[in-house]
Amino acid sequence: MKYTHHTRFLIGCLLALILLPWLFHATDSSYLVSTFTRLIIFAIAAVSLDLLIGYTGLVSFGHAAFLGVGAYTVGILSFHAYEETTFLGLPGTLSGLTAIPLAVLLSALVALIIGALSLRTKGVYFIMITLSFGQMLFFLFVSLEQYGGDDGMMMFDGRNTLPGLDLNDRVEFYYFCLTWFTLFFLFCTRLVRSKFGRTLAAIRQNEDRLSSIGINEYWAKLQIFVIAGIGAGLAGALSANHTEFISPDITHWTRSGDLMIVVILGGMGTLIGPVLGTFLFLLLEEFLPLILHSFGFDLLSEHWRFVFGPILILVVLYAKSGLYGMIFRKGG
């Protein structure tokens, strides 16, 4: 029963997301399309992190690194296309057919390297080593003075180009991101239900037992780490296109913290949960100041984190299954 309930909910959500631009157009609030584009992009990254935290039990505290790799790939290519210069002898490009796949490929490569080294450690050491790699990439991007260093860079030529699609159009870009989100989400759903998905669950539950029955758990963990890196890299590439601005901020460690927050807030190990968590988190970020303001808490509306922090602590302490748990376990 839960299964059909689940599917119905998903289809409902997807339909709502498809219809959203019309709704906003009708209510004369088209600027919200951009807000929701941001939600969808962030949700891709959150879902990819859920593969690690929720399904495999790998608490990665450096996931924003891959967002950075994806975003900077798109940004650097666009920069050289604009300047008509070359990067390591290669010309820049604005073509989405080159830039986005390359962003994903590089993210996978970086994830392979980081994963291969990090996965030698366990538990709290893994948390810290991933945090360190995140910091390393952060400082690497800061040091790229040619690409704006600390301040980051603009994509002066606008978003990537694709045949038959104008990404600079708000609505078309929204659907472009929604398509990627849907594809990635479906891929992850299949993945976690596959035999490989069961291997991951076994790793989460008891790693030693797994290696004693002859499954190479290191290899499985590395594979899922790379897949998660690809998801975040894709989100990074889309995010660069969305804001047309890339700065080291995207790899700041608090960004990795935010990603973990949305996964937990929504309910980890559920795929849908992180999406719900993303929506709640970013909408709160957008509207909590307004809500607090309208209730007359002016001081708190500027300092909404003062309210958000305790809410989050309560969720961690008392509502572990997150939003997902509230929707599907109690009601359903």
Binding site: I53, V59, F61, G123, V124, I127, G257, M260, I261, I264, H303, R305, F306, F308, G309, P310, L312, I313, V316, L317, K320
Partner: peptide, 20 residues
């Protein structure tokens, strides 16, 4: 560890904002 990281991360948000 995951819960600890998150709860104390939230605590940072609270303390920083309170100090501000």
């Amino acid at each position: 560890h995951l819960d600890q990281v998150l709860a104390t991360f939230a605590l940072i948000l609270f303390i920083n904002e309170g100090t501000t």
